[in-house]
Design a protein around this nucleic acid. Structure first.
Lengths: 168, 168
DNA sequence: AGCAGGTATTACACCTGTAAAACATTTCTG
DNA sequence: CAGAAATGTTTTACAGGTGTAATACCTGCT
């Protein structure tokens, strides 16, 4: 049985200070490290299409909601700041992937939607992306994968309740 | 049984395209989202001490290794670029938390170590940080927590083998 | 009309990584 | 053995992305 990075780090801490209760590290440290490795891997196929992960998230949010969204909704949907969304929308519009029109009744708000080209890109890219992710996870036995999904869902619900997650 | 964010997103995708095999999302999406929420929470107590998470990681690496490290080693230890480490070291040195001396035999390399003040800060902050993390996780039943740690360790080993993790 | 509140954008400061540069050492070669 | 080339370590320069806060604009109510 070989150690992962987090186990090595925890062992180092114990050697230096045996009093330390490193329990939370073993969970939080591993989540952070897995997320970092996965994100790094995930980004590769998107870069090939000239997109940032954040931009792809924006396109995906529009595609799966299947309607026009306002920049504010998109910011909430993708958990990022309004300013970041503004900037990304400009880039996506210049690439011809999205279009925008302003609301007739309330001229503060804009409605943003995928162009045909944008929708085609998402519909082509997402299956590729999912296949790639599947390949990264392949080799992990099924019990581990399913056990993780279920327990992460419980953790996520716990965190959403305890921290910021105001949604719907 | 209520849905987490990822489950809602997956449901939206299925409504729009039932063909999609969203399996990987349920794992990867949850890891990313948990990591985002946890990092946001984690940063709060550190900010109170005037430190970035990344800076604290640097201090922690020095403390737990219990010896002077070179900037290059610190970059590998904290998984960040050399340039980022250089910049953070300068800030930490200006705060009086670390000191540096250059190697006698090979004047390319520098050795960086905690000052007394730096060590005291880590020794005071880390238990606080761990207690805070414990409080964030409290309420999660033990089986879920342990099940997660073990399975995440398996995933982490898998990813380290498959992606970049060249260590030791 | 004026004001309170909501929406989007702009301005600014900061952090990060890639690539190039600066500097030091080791190795090769004539 | 000297000097050049290759290698290694750190720092600097630059470009890009992000969030906070300030700004511009709009609506709806009093």
């Amino acid at each position: 049985m070989t150690d992962d990075i987090v186990a090595s780090v925890v062992r180092q801490w114990h050697a230096v200070n045996p009093e330390l209760d490193t329990g939370p590290m073993e969970l939080i440290g591993r989540i952070n490290r897995c997320a970092a490795l996965l994100q790094q891997a995930e980004d590769a196929p998107l870069r090939a299409a000239g997109l940032t992960r954040a931009e792809f998230d924006l396109l995906g949010a529009m595609r799966r909601n299947d309607r026009e969204l306002t920049p504010g909704e998109l910011a909430r949907e993708t958990f990022s700041s309004g300013a970041a969304v503004t900037k990304r929308l400009r880039a996506l519009q210049e690439s011809g992937l999205i279009g925008r029109r302003s609301d007739v009744r309330d001229r503060r708000v804009a409605h943003v939607g995928l162009t045909d080209e944008g929708r085609e890109l998402v519909d082509r890219l997402l299956p590729e992306q999912l296949a790639y992710e599947r390949s990264v996870l392949s080799g992990l036995d099924e019990e581990t994968r399913d056990g993780l999904s279920g327990r992460l869902s419980a953790l996520l619900l716990h965190l959403e309740g305890r921290l910021g997650g105001s949604r719907r």
